[in-house]
Design a protein around this nucleic acid. Structure first.
Lengths: 334, 334
DNA sequence: CTGTTAGCGCTTTCAA
DNA sequence: TTGAAAGCGCTAACAG
């Protein structure tokens, strides 16, 4: 850009570019006096090193990539917040890529990042189907930390939440509140995240001797209207007294279906949803939630990535599991 | 990275790096046959050009920066979604920086970006105070498009929404619903965005001959608890029958204050909030909203930036104004 | 249509 | 403690 460069700085100071470069990087082999002079002029002239040049030479980009399904998902935007905070502490830059749940796009993004554009990747995967070999190839080239939606078939560093336990607890809570017909609105069933949540539900039902009912399990269709229709049919046909939704997006069609059928939540149907909506307390008429520590997950995942980058730490296939919180709305009395 | 480079490709093909480089960029001065050979081998070997090298040489980074106050704000995450979509269409990368409303950080980010790391910047500013000269310096060096929270003191390309008109309409709507004491919960008052919203409210009150009352205007304090306390006091002291909140974050403390005072919304107090919460229909007990076209703003702002980058278009100080939508919840009957 | 060559701005040996 | 010089991988002017 219209900017000053090392050579000009050196010229103005009657020093070599090498010396100036070293002074700016605070090398111990430069005299304090020279350093001072260099730093002063650099600040005065607003010198900013050209990142392409230094990346090219040093083979480090000071940049990490975050690959996620959707930024507009509350969970992910909170995670990005955490990631950005840690990246800034390390003086790193953050690139964002959205897959919109498309695995091919996901792999394409990663392949393109293999060229040195980033030093590492944080990813929450779109699905756990096939592409394993692609992932493995990429893991050989670049440090990758998986978070939340991890790929179980891959040995890698991962940060997740206690999907099984939290859903187990939530289901148990509904049972303790007297629910006997608890519907489960399933989603992410091509991901370990979704499978674990579902397993937690099934186990809680079984352990409490509540007859589980196949008919009470509805898969998510990625389309709000379809979901609404399915849920409404379920409510009419099966009359569940409790519902667990395995992702936040199912809460809305569920709420509408109840409203349109004049079912009062929580009186007629008790509802617990996975949700990272900050304003969830505003929700009507009192939706209880399973809330994941998204911000903390972002921070943890990024911190681990930086440990790997700085070679300060490298536990190859460790998985860190954070705890979700079940928030019970007082106002619902359940 | 462990990757193949141009030289190796050229060697394997018995061609010069120049020819290979041109073939890859689909230059017209290369024979179809050579191109084919090059492309084939490149694909086979998963060749990815080194971005630092080509950026350094071509002085283009294929990257844009997005500087915003908070990713976890629904408006901004939706805007990022739009920006990312357009960037991908142009084969560009997107860097994210959060200012957390800190103007100094904002300027520091921009300064650091002046070194060629990005080709352009999309920004929604933290405040409109002082830093004008810094902004002007930066605008001379790099294309910048302001969106939503623009800086009025700067001549630049901008994308905003109709803050004045939408607030005017919302206020008028409350008046038409019979409200006579309408409180305004003010925020962003150091920004034209906030000032215009406030002006829209005042004008609507005046035009409808509703006595406006200084006491009914509360500034936002950036702290939910403080806001809650102030709003509660306002509700007790002044007993407004309508409220407009100028930012989404004020809706929650407002809701709590009403609930704790046993005031029914909308029966006792009608509430309209600026909000980009996708699940707003879930809100209790029916909050009406002024919703900005965040996704579209992101797309528009990014599109304009790319027009500038491609020199296809350059209307120096144009401001594009998009329309907000006032969503009236049917269930509230107001 | 293809090759030679210089150089983008920086870091880093190696030599002084 | 400092400088000279090479070179990271790519692009583009110029030559053929």
């Amino acid at each position: 850009m219209g900017n000053i460069n090392l050579k000009e700085l050196a010229l103005a100071l009657n020093l070599s570019t090498a010396t100036v470069s070293r002074a700016l990087r605070d090398s111990h082999e430069i005299s304090t006096e020279t350093k001072k002079k260099v730093l002063e002029l650099a600040k005065k002239l607003n010198y900013e090193p050209n990142p392409s040049a230094s990346n090219l030479r040093s083979q480090k980009s000071k940049t990490i990539a975050v690959i996620i399904p959707e930024v507009t998902n509350n969970f992910f935007s909170q995670a990005i917040n955490g990631i950005e905070e840690i990246a800034r502490q390390h003086d790193y830059h953050v690139l964002i890529y959205q897959t919109h749940e498309n695995s091919e796009l996901e792999i394409a993004f990663m392949r393109r990042l293999l060229s040195g554009r980033v030093d590492g990747i944080l990813i929450s995967v779109a699905s756990e189907t096939n592409d394993d070999q692609d992932f493995k190839d990429i893991l050989n080239e670049l440090p990758v930390v998986f978070f939340d939606r991890v790929n179980e078939n891959i040995d890698a560093v991962k940060v997740t939440t206690d999907d099984y336990e939290s859903t187990y607890k939530a289901t148990t809570h509904l049972i303790e509140c007297g629910c006997r017909k608890i519907a489960y609105l399933m989603a992410l069933n091509n991901l370990s995240t979704g499978k674990k949540r579902f397993a937690g539900y099934l186990a809680a039902m079984k352990d409490n001797n509540v007859t589980e009912n196949e008919a009470l399990i509805i898969p998510d269709s990625n389309n709000d209207d379809d979901n609404y229709t399915h849920i409404k049919k379920l409510l009419l046909d099966e009359k569940p007294d409790g519902i667990i939704t395995s992702i936040e997006n199912l809460a809305l069609p569920c709420y509408y279906a109840c409203r349109d059928l004049k079912l009062n939540i929580p009186r007629d149907v008790k509802l617990i949803s996975f949700s990272n909506l900050k304003t969830a307390p505003l929700l009507n008429p009192s939706l209880s939630t399973i809330t994941q520590p998204a911000f903390e997950m972002g921070k943890e995942a990024a911190s681990i990535l930086f440990k790997i980058l700085n070679k300060k730490y490298f536990e190859p296939n460790e998985t860190l599991v954070l705890k979700s919180v079940i928030i019970k709305r007082e106002s619902t009395g359940f």
